[in-house]
């Protein structure tokens, strides 16, 4: 009896460890430090140069200048090449650097840059950018980079964006359960919606 019990414990242990090994080799959803996987992009986009603070050599461009749909749509959107060229055709100083050369190659070939998704949610989750931007940026007057940073981390210090937050359901709910002020001046607070059909449809 005891022998069988030990054997079964051993077997269960083996199965569990094999399972966790298999899960780790695929792609960890959340690493120990909550950092997402490094995403290999066609060429490095320096977020820090564009959105970073001026004292660190950044341009302090509003996130929504490029990710323009965030305020009015479910998705934030990746800017078209046209958006990059719109500024870069008149910035002579960096015109001959390798990354900008590559950018203009795509532009002249009339091809979209195949950016890879960094903050990728499973297809059964429907996160709504508009609601969060409307609430935090427009109703509460929070700085854009702070509001975006709740979920996207400190993108303005990164070159290629990397996931910094777990983006798991428990993590979303941990914020939705807290009370937040309704707008910048009001003392009234309310928490985020927490019924399943807000995100899972």
């Amino acid at each position: 009896m005891n022998y069988f019990l030990r054997l079964s414990v051993l077997l269960v242990g083996l199965v569990v460890s094999a399972g966790s090994y298999a899960a780790n080799t695929v792609q960890p959803l959340t690493t120990a430090d909550d950092l997402g996987p490094k995403v290999e992009q066609p060429f490095e986009f320096p977020h820090n140069r564009h959105a970073g603070n001026a004292d660190k050599g950044g341009m302090e461009i509003n996130c929504m200048y490029c990710h323009t749909y965030a305020r009015r749509s479910m998705v934030a959107g990746i800017p078209p090449v046209q958006k990059c060229i719109g500024c870069h055709q008149s910035i002579e100083s960096v015109r001959e650097t390798p990354r900008i050369k590559k950018l203009f190659e795509y532009w002249e070939a009339k091809k979209a840059i195949p950016w890879k998704k960094v903050h990728d949610l499973p297809e059964f989750v429907r996160f709504n950018h508009e609601r969060h931007i409307q609430r935090f940026v427009f109703a509460q007057n929070k700085p854009v980079q702070e509001a975006c940073g709740y979920c996207h981390g400190d993108v303005k210090t990164m070159t290629v964006a990397r996931r910094q937050k777990p983006l798991s359901m428990g993590w979303c709910v941990s914020c939705h359960q807290k009370d937040h002020p309704v707008d910048a001046t009001s003392t009234k607070t309310t928490h985020g919606p927490n019924d399943c059909w807000q995100c899972h449809k």
Binding site: F124, P193, D195, C196, W197, H200
Partner: peptide, 15 residues
Amino acid sequence: TNHTADGLNSQVYNR
């Protein structure tokens, strides 16, 4: 399957 605040009977496939 739960009730939402707006009176719908929700079915959550993941759960």
